[in-house]
Design a protein around this nucleic acid. Structure first.
Length: 638
RNA sequence: GCUGCUGUGGCUCAGAGGUAGAGCACGUCCUUGGUAAGGACGAGGCCGUGGGUUCAAUUCCCACCAGCAGCUCCA
């Protein structure tokens, strides 16, 4: 009589299979269909593959294609399948790591051959062949020494290094599928035949272990899903992202351009400049309400300033310098040193605090050539920047006020909720334990009070204080920091700033660096992708375009244009001798919110025929009521 | 900065060792047409820049510049 164990299933049912039964057999013993559908199993909370034997009482939940865990298992197995295919095509291939990532998987490798896009098709075909062979994945284990020997035999230096970094007593598992074996902790699908819906996407270089001093490996990116529909949707979303790319949209709509003679520095064309200025005007309006005072500060400072602020020591590789009359100057990469000078320029009283300086000053930062991209990473930009000088006791109030301002802006702009990241004290930092502790707990308490979800990034704060970053994603899924709120215990120290407290003593203010939109350039890029170029009416450089059906109505069309312009709207006229269909098409491609079609009927009745961007033809309306409608929409920031 | 790819009229792109093409946009003319492309004709190019190979280079090679993807970086 074989020994049995007790296995608890998700529905609470307990079964008693023989000790050592592997999970695949267990699934089959429960139901034939479960045996077929199962991809892996969660044993006491840990995902395992189906070849693992069970030798103790446990709770077991089988992962089928319907479960969220299945996707990662499939992707991980696809990475192995990719490696198997590559090894077949290029037997000299040496492999690095092949993890699952948010949107799929990749595998890093060293190959004698430089991969080209066409190679992906060949590799993918080989993957399909290996999947069709339906190899079972066999798990085996080795000691660390055994694994090192294994890596040596295969002349796989990268795997060797990975194993070397593991503790001496570790047991290392290997997975084999057909002729291919890889080092891996698993879990994996039971057979390669379970891998059906995958696609290789791109080739890139990547430093071995992310270290720019080490060799660059070739990385193949791919994605995989448990079902065909999800894969298709993912690929569609990728295409959509390309359509929304702000660089494409900006060019098509004539918003901005770049020129090789000013690399990574945007030129805002008239329509883009209008949008840019509208955003500034909008934020400026809120400053009134939230107690900020706008200042205008110099562009270039003697280098001494940046030595005081610390930028010279920590950041000079990213700054632009110039010399005049034998004195060295630096172009500002940030506004804060200027604001510190203004704060320190006269004696300050606690009665003036919190003192909030806002500054749309242009900043210049030298960014390495490989990192710049469109509007999202540029060498010159302006922020809706501000610095708050305050007493320590005000940290809570100012945090709350900032959140109110930040939320207001995101609401007005109809932006999705950003990911909120809280960075706490890093290993190297300035400021007292007490100050840090108080600041961190105040920030967190405020977030809790506001019901704001956040992710804690311990040790990710700036050396000068804890921070809250707000991230949104662009069309291609890259995360960008827009809003930020950073406490600074260092700046006041460096500039020897103080104020007279109520008790007559001199105290150090705490400084906050904060921005809501962040870099206006980056914001415009991300926002254009968010709205796919369809700017809301209140931010559209052209709000309405008047289209004439025939030449006879041009005088009336001009009248409509001037009526609208007189009301403060931005209007264009298309009176070309073209057919109305052509004018509509052009207007639609320009993403103008309202196209106003004018023919004899409209002229005779003092009307405009409205074609709304997202709706289509809405028929004729008296001009006066269209004006009311536009006014209402602009007021509602629609 | 690193790895790879790309650079041809305003835009999107084709092209071949023998000094260049399409569509759209633009201009002129015809057409006055009612909700996503009317027609004809025309103008427009140092084929990113600089070297090299060649009888001949926009095409091949090298370097540089710029862009794209990824990596690294972003006090």
């Amino acid at each position: 009589m074989a020994e049995t164990i007790r296995v608890t299933l998700p529905d609470g049912k307990v079964i008693e299979p023989a000790k050592g039964i592997n999970l695949g057999d267990l699934a089959r013993s429960i139901a034939i269909s479960l045996g077929k559908k199962a991809i892996a199993a969660v044993v006491d909370g840990q995902t395992r593959d189906l070849h693992v034997g069970l030798d103790h009482d446990a709770t077991v939940k089988f992962v089928t294609e319907a479960d969220a865990e299945a996707q990662d298992v499939v992707r991980h197995s696809c990475a192995h399948l990719l490696a198997q295919a590559v090894k077949r095509l290029y037997p000299e291939a040496k492999f690095g790591v092949g993890p699952v990532i948010e949107s799929g998987f990749y595998y890093d490798m060293e190959l004698p051959h430089q991969l080209e896009p066409e190679d992906l098709e060949k590799i993918e075909a080989e993957m399909k062949a290996a999947a069709a062979a339906d190899f079972p994945l066999k798990r085996s284990t080795l000691s660390r020494d055994g694994a090192l020997q294994w890596a040596n035999e295969r002349a796989d230096p990268y795997k060797h290094e990975l194993i070397s970094d593991l503790p001496a007593d570790v047991t290392i598992s290997l997975y084999s599928q057909g002729e291919f074996t890889d080092l891996c902790t698993g879990p994996h699908v039971p057979t390669t035949g379970r891998l059906k819906h995958f696609k290789l996407l791109s080739i890139a270089g990547a430093y071995w272990r992310g270290d720019e001093k080490r060799p660059v490996l070739q990385r193949i990116y791919g994605t995989a899903f448990v079902d065909a529909k999800s894969l298709e949707e993912h690929l569609k979303a990728r295409e959509e992202a390309v359509r929304r790319d702000h660089r494409k949209v900006g060019k098509e709509l004539g918003l901005f351009m770049f020129h090789p003679l000013a690399p990574a520095s945007p030129f805002f064309l008239p329509k883009g400049a209008w949008l840019y200025n509208a955003l500034v005007a909008y934020v400026r309006g809120l400053y009134q309400e939230f107690g900020y005072q706008e200042v205008v500060t110099p562009q270039i400072f003697a280098t001494e300033l940046f030595k005081i602020s610390g930028h010279y020591d920590n950041y000079k590789e990213n700054m632009y310098f110039t010399t005049a009359e034998e004195r060295e100057f630096g172009v500002k990469p940030m506004n804060c040193p200027a604001h510190a000078l203004m704060f320190g320029a006269k004696g300050r009283s606690y009665r003036e605090l919190p003192l909030r300086f806002a500054d749309f000053g242009r900043l210049h930062r030298f960014e390495r050539s490989g990192v710049v991209a469109g509007l999202t990473r540029v060498r010159t930009f302006a922020q809706d920047d501000g610095h708050i000088f305050m007493a320590q006791e005000s940290i809570g109030d100012e945090t709350e006020s900032f959140f109110a301002l930040q939320h207001r802006i995101y609401k007005d702009l109809r932006l999705p909720d950003p990911t909120v990241l809280v960075g706490t004290r890093p290993p190297k930092s300035v400021g007292s334990d007490e100050l840090w502790q108080k600041a961190e707990s105040t920030l967190l308490a405020q977030l809790e009070r506001l019901g704001q979800k956040y992710t804690l990034n311990p040790g990710d704060g700036a050396f000068y204080g804890p921070k809250i970053d707000f991230q949104v994603r662009d069309a291609i899924g890259r995360a960008w920091q827009l809003s930020t709120f950073q406490l600074d215990f260092n700046m006041a120290e460096r500039f020897d700033l103080h104020y007279n407290a109520q008790d007559g003593t001199a105290k150090r203010p705490v400084v906050v660096h904060r921005a809501m939109l962040g870099s206006l350039e980056r914001f415009i890029g991300v926002y254009l992708e968010h709205v796919a170029g369809n700017l809301p009416v209140w931010l559209s450089p052209v709000q309405a375009k008047v289209l004439t059906v025939m030449t006879d109505v041009v005088p009336y069309a001009r009248e409509v244009v001037s009526r609208l312009a007189a009301e403060g709207f931005r209007v264009e006229l298309d009176d070309r001798p073209e057919k109305i269909g052509a004018k509509i098409r052009d207007g639609a491609l320009e993403k103008v919110p309202y196209l106003l079609v004018i023919g004899a009927r409209e002229r005779d009745s003092g009307a405009v025929a409205i074609r709304e961007r997202s709706v289509g033809d809405q028929g004729a309306t008296p001009l006066a009521s269209f004006i009311e409608r536009l006014k209402a929409e602009v007021a509602a920031k629609r």
